[in-house]
Design a protein around this nucleic acid. Structure first.
Lengths: 208, 208
DNA sequence: TTTGAAATATTAACAGTGTTAATTATCTTT
DNA sequence: AAAGATAATTAACACTGTTAATATTTCAAA
């Protein structure tokens, strides 16, 4: 018997909440289906498989980050804008741990890209590249104002991204907490260390 | 019928090769067992479960890194030693991608710690802390020689580790390759960018 | 040497997974 | 009403980690 009309969005919505609260492996097609009230195989009429669903979430996450980044143009001074961008990134990683993992840590979404895309022009990852080029152009704005003399903007973008990514993943994975001498640190305390570290890094960058 | 006498080490050896060549999720207890030539449930007589096996590999990985770090005392000048440490870390991450993932990215080994350790003194992660303190003391040696004035050694260690970790994970996950404008980059080219980035970072650190 | 407990491995089974093929039910158009 | 397209279903396959119950082997004591 036919239950109701289902849409891709409805499936993605449920998948999202399950993924974010229980993780990728713990979220099964059957769980998603039963929460919607449909048969498991119905999902395959809308998505080719689990990896396509997680890739859709990967894209949704980048949409979210993009929205967050759009407020940055309000900060006029380039170096201040770069710092604001860093804080944006950190906030995003803290507030959306699940999305961050899907976007930057999990291998499945990128694997999906490599396999699904037309095999001629090798996989694009447009979402990631767009975000990265936003960083590059901010850095180049800084250079126009006298910062980062004798550095290559692309290399610098790589360094800064790597730094932010490292901080965020160490925090989200719990290593930052474990490595600290103070026992029984609250999440807030750990996150404040993360943010402090970033401020120190900004100061470093200013004077290179 | 009884096949042969099995040891924990034998299981771990097979588990290691399977984990490293096929990944955590793709490696099943049954695959490990069949490669040894025993019944799947026999493994549970030696390890409590899959997470205990991956935790054992986690420890083996840290043992390996420790060995690599032990050669560092040959470098006398502190800042040069710090740089050598960085190169060591990068080399380890490149040459042992599987181990690196188990040690620093996967959540299971740390989850195992949190659950298994005596619940009074909250989980220790001795392996990671030891490596981190090696970094701290090298930084303090640098400080004694005039580097890093007005910085806190612990904070600096965090920053440097985060930076290295970020570079390595972005490389090992493929983002470094995807973000580059040059198409069809070889692994060697990507890794050389990684190492170059590190050299730039070292130069930055020298002058803060 | 026989007996019996300890050690070691095995089979059977449970509850779950992603995914495909074949089938049924409903809606739309002629 | 009949036919075709659409949308959902059930059944099944080949897996997964893990537990309980069972079998086999080893080895020391009687």
């Amino acid at each position: 018997m036919k239950r109701k009309k289902i849409s891709k969005e409805e499936i993605l919505e449920v998948a999202k909440s399950l993924f974010l609260e229980q993780g990728y492996e713990a979220t099964s097609i059957r769980k998603i289906a039963s929460r919607i009230g449909i048969s498991p195989t119905t999902i395959y009429l809308y998505y080719k498989g689990k990896t396509e669903i997680v890739h859709a979430l990967h894209s949704a996450g980048f949409e979210l980050l993009k929205k967050k980044f759009e407020t940055l143009h309000l900060v006029e001074e380039p170096f201040e804008r770069l710092k604001a961008m860093g804080r944006c990134y950190i906030d995003f990683a803290i507030e959306n741990k699940g999305f961050y993992e899907i976007m930057f840590i999990m291998k499945e979404p990128l694997k999906y890209l490599k396999n699904s895309e037309k095999p001629s022009c090798d996989s694009e990852w447009e979402e990631g590249k767009t975000a990265f080029h936003a960083l590059i152009s901010t850095i180049e704005d800084c250079m126009d104002n006298g910062y980062f003399k004798h550095y290559d903007s692309h290399t610098l973008a790589l360094l800064i991204w790597a730094h932010m990514h490292g901080l965020c993943t160490l925090n989200n994975n719990g290593q930052l907490e474990l490595v600290n001498n103070k026992t029984d640190m609250t999440i807030q305390e750990t996150e404040s260390i993360l943010k402090q570290s970033f401020e120190v890094y900004s100061q470093m960058l200013k004077n290179i």
